[in-house]
Design a binder for these strands. Structure first.
Length: 211
DNA sequence: CCTCAGATGGACT
DNA sequence: GTCCATCTGAGGC
């Protein structure tokens, strides 16, 4: 699993490198394996969108100052949780928000957690929208406030480089502005959102044009 | 495909 | 009292 050293680095580097890695959750003895597809970086020192901007310390934000690999979970809009991996060394407020994953293994359990239904019964729409959002992935992986201040280097929640069942996957990383932070003035335009984009197989292969 | 209203509660001023 | 690092279902096209 990725260790503390991985997370105790520059936040933008950690954010970008997390894309394509595998987030693993153990829940009641079963595993849910997911591939990270979308993240955003938040850096307190220079980022008005960060909950701990400019050294702000409150009961909620104090976890952002913890050592890299610490888990920061908060409630948003009164209904959903958002999960972050704290980065940099203790004392520096910064984190990476997990915005999207693809469930690779443990789909039955994830479907139950998210929809209270069997995977087999889900519509295509529900399968597609299983965990492609920060609130959605927390539901699908059973991440709650109880995980706040825990660690991403634990047996119940951790991230690995590769997953055996998956071969090498060709992808690119797309950078863009972060979502839902219109209030953050100049930070609104920072390109701190990183998305996994599958590389398309060569299109020309089977496409022939006849005159 | 799209847009939009409404749900809902904790953190902070 | 105000503001959210969101999601869903309904209705339009």
């Amino acid at each position: 699993m990725l260790n503390k050293k991985f997370y105790e680095r520059d936040t933008l580097t950690v954010a970008e490198e997390l894309v394509g890695k595998y987030l693993i959750r153990r829940y009641q003895g079963q595993y849910i394996v997911s591939r990270i597809t979308e993240v955003e970086a938040y850096i307190g020192a220079i980022d008005k969108a960060c909950h701990a901007y400019d050294g702000k310390v409150t009961p909620r934000t104090k976890v952002l100052y913890e050592q890299g690999s610490t888990c920061y979970v908060y409630l948003i809009y009164g209904m959903y949780y958002c999960a972050n991996v704290v980065t940099e060394e203790k004392g520096i407020a910064s984190a990476v928000l997990l915005r999207g994953v693809d469930i690779v293994e443990g789909k039955e359990l994830a479907a139950n957690l998210r929809y209270d239904k069997e995977w087999i019964d889900l519509s295509a729409y529900q399968k597609k929208n299983m965990s492609n959002g920060p609130g959605k992935l927390c539901n699908a992986l059973a991440i709650t406030k109880a995980d706040n201040e825990s660690s991403f280097c634990s047996e119940d929640l951790f991230i690995v480089d590769t997953w055996n069942e998956h071969g090498e996957i060709d992808f690119e990383i797309e950078k863009g502005p972060r979502i839902g932070i219109e209030y953050a003035e100049e930070a609104t335009d920072f390109l701190w959102r990183f998305c996994l984009v599958e590389k398309k197989a060569s299109k020309t292969k089977n496409v022939k044009k006849y005159k």
